[in-house]
């Protein structure tokens, strides 16, 4: 693992940039632990101060230090993205591998469930749920709900790959080696599926963080909680741009861009690395 990271860092510019960006965002999130201010409290600092040494990102019209507020916002948004990705990846891998390898009735049942999720309009449903549970909707619950919607496309992708792997001779070799289907799936097929899983993880994080921004800007999430989305919501509420408090809006937008770019670059760099073809070239094929 260390060697992989070192190689990527040494030979791939995208990976270097991604590391810097993501580290910056991560450090920001970690700093939330030592924040002098509670994000739930307002009017602890003077309002509408432009960026300065004392307040690097300035202060908001709600009397909060934007820098320290953002540490919580980033932490919560990342948490949401990671949980959503983890939940939906688990479902996608399980459904994709099972449907692909077992085939037959299992495949048909799983894929009809899959397709029902595909055709469900996610945004209206999320809006409805948020509206109904407004106030009680915790970040974890939101992440789980989004996770439940984030898997079907990727499950199909994994299934398609397993279907073609199943026809390859090495799967038959494993069968005639007396290997059971669970072990075939894990040993023979999972290594080929992992690049897809990784690619879709990053994709899924981007999707869920973006979705949360959408919900928040509409005012449908728990706006007392600091996230990238709620920051923008509050800034809009106080007409930050009209009032000239541009730093209040610039901070979340720039941090979101850095986070998204970092994730994207990490995705494309690592994806190329774990592509079986690259792995083959590396081991000298």
């Amino acid at each position: 693992m260390w060697k992989v990271t070192r190689d990527l860092f040494k030979y791939d510019g995208r990976f270097r940039i991604a590391t810097v960006f993501l580290l910056a965002v991560l450090i920001l999130a970690i700093l939330s632990a030592v924040s002098p201010y509670d994000p739930g409290k307002t009017f602890k600092v003077p309002q509408d101060l432009p960026p300065s040494w004392g307040h690097p990102f300035g202060t908001s019209s709600r009397g909060q230090d934007v820098f320290w507020w953002m540490t919580f916002a980033v932490r919560n948004s990342l948490f949401l993205g990671l949980v959503t990705a983890a939940v939906s990846r688990l479902i996608a891998i399980f459904v994709g591998l099972t449907a692909g390898y077992r085939g037959g009735l299992v495949d048909r049942v799983l894929m009809s469930i899959n397709d029902s999720f595909v055709v469900m309009p996610v945004l209206p449903i999320l809006i409805l749920l948020s509206f109904l549970l407004r106030g009680q909707l915790s970040l974890l619950m939101l992440a789980f709900i989004m996770g439940l919607f984030g898997w079907p496309w990727d499950a199909r992708l994994i299934r398609a790959q397993v279907l073609s792997l199943k026809e390859r001779a090495f799967t038959r070799t494993a069968v005639y080696s007396g290997t059971g289907s669970l072990k075939i799936t894990l040993d023979e097929h999972l290594p080929f599926v992992l690049p897809v899983v990784f690619a879709t993880t990053v994709n899924n994080m981007l999707w869920s963080i973006g979705m949360e921004v959408t919900l928040s800007v509409l005012g449908l999430s728990n706006v007392t909680l600091a996230t990238i989305g709620t920051t923008i919501f509050w800034a809009n509420q106080h007409q930050a741009l009209v009032a000239g408090v541009w730093w209040w809006l610039a901070a979340p937008v720039i941090i979101a861009i850095i986070l998204f770019l970092g994730l994207y670059l990490l995705f494309s760099s690592v994806n190329e690395y774990i592509d079986p073809r690259t792995r083959l070239r590396l081991i000298g094929g």
Binding site: D7, D12, Y273, R281, L282
Partner: peptide
């Protein structure tokens, strides 16, 4: 001539 992650091959 190929070079992949620092491993060059001819």
């Amino acid at each position: 001539r190929t070079e992949v992650y620092g491993i060059s091959r001819i």
